[in-house]
C-alpha cells in the first residue's frame, strides 16, 4: 500500500468502485435498461409494418437507442463524483490522471454493454429478427467496437459537461456529433449482418469502428488531464 499503484491498477480500482456503487444501487442501470425497452416499444408503435420491412428498420432503432441510453449512463459518470466533492479525492490520489479517465471509461463501457444486453434482445424480439450464432457473434463484435469509441468520447465530455453551467444538458450537444461515425458504421454493419450478406461488407464498416477506437481512446485519454488541472 505504500507504493502508489500503476496506471492499470489505479484505473481498475476506480472502475471497480464505480461498478460496486452501481451494483449496490442499480439506479442508473435500471433506468437505462427501462429506457431502452420503452424506446424500442415507442419505435414499434410508430412503425407501419406494411410500409417498411422490420429488417430495414431494426438496425436504425437499435443504434438510436444505443446512443441515447449511452448518454444516460455517461451523464451519471462524473455527476456522481460531485456529491461531497468526491472528485477532489480522486484527483489528489497519487495516481496519474489518465488512470482516473481510464477507470471511469472502463466502468462506463461495462455499463453501456450491460444496457445493450437488454436492448439488443428487446429489438430482436419486437422486430421479429431471426439471428443465427454467426450473426449474433458479429453483432456482439460490432457492439463492443462501437461501445469503446462511444464511451471514450462520452466519458471525456461528461467530465467537461458536469463542470459547466449547463451540466448534463451540454453532453448531448458535445457528444452526439462524435457519435455520428460510430452509429453510422455500426448500423450499416448491422444491416449487412441481419440481411445475411457476406461478412466482408460488415468487416469494412467494422474497420471504421476500429480506426475510430484507435484514434479516440488515446486522444481522449491524453486530453483528460487538460480538462481538470487548475
Amino acid at each position: 500500500m505504500s507504493e502508489p499503484p500503476g496506471v492499470i491498477a489505479a484505473a481498475w480500482a476506480i472502475a471497480r468502485k464505480d461498478l460496486t456503487v452501481e451494483l449496490r444501487t442499480r439506479a442508473a442501470f435500471l433506468s437505462a435498461a427501462v429506457f431502452s425497452v420503452l424506446a424500442a416499444a415507442i419505435f414499434l408503435y410508430t412503425w407501419d409494418p406494411t410500409a417498411v420491412a422490420s429488417i430495414d428498420l431494426a438496425p436504425g432503432v437499435l443504434w438510436v437507442i444505443f446512443t441515447f441510453a449511452g448518454l444516460l449512463g455517461l451523464n451519471r459518470s462524473f455527476s456522481a463524483e460531485l456529491a461531497d466533492r468526491a472528485i477532489d479525492g480522486l484527483l489528489i490520489a497519487p495516481v496519474r490522471r489518465e488512470a482516473v479517465f481510464l477507470g471511469k471509461a472502463f466502468a462506463n463501457l461495462i455499463f453501456v454493454l450491460g444496457v445493450q444486453v437488454v436492448a439488443i434482445p428487446t429489438v430482436v424480439l419486437f422486430y421479429n429478427l431471426s439471428l443465427g450464432w454467426g450473426a449474433s457473434a458479429a453483432i456482439a463484435g460490432i457492439t463492443v467496437l462501437a461501445s469503446v469509441g462511444l464511451v471514450a468520447v462520452g466519458t471525456l465530455f461528461s467530465a467537461m459537461a458536469v463542470n459547466t453551467r449547463l451540466a448534463e444538458l451540454l453532453l448531448p450537444v458535445l457528444a452526439l456529433p462524435f457519435f455520428v461515425p460510430v452509429v453510422t458504421a455500426a448500423a450499416q454493419a448491422t444491416v449487412l449482418v441481419i440481411n445475411g450478406r457476406p461478412l466482408s461488407g460488415a468487416v469494412d464498416w467494422m474497420r471504421v469502428l476500429v480506426a475510430f477506437d484507435l484514434v479516440f481512446v488515446p486522444a481522449c485519454t491524453m486530453a483528460y488531464p487538460f480538462t481538470i488541472e487548475s
Partner: peptide
Amino acid sequence: VLAILAGLLIPFIHLSVYL
C-alpha cells in the same frame, strides 16, 4: 480540447458518409 477532437473527427464523418 473540443476543437482538437473535432479536428480528428471530421475525417471520420467524411469517411463514414463516403462509404
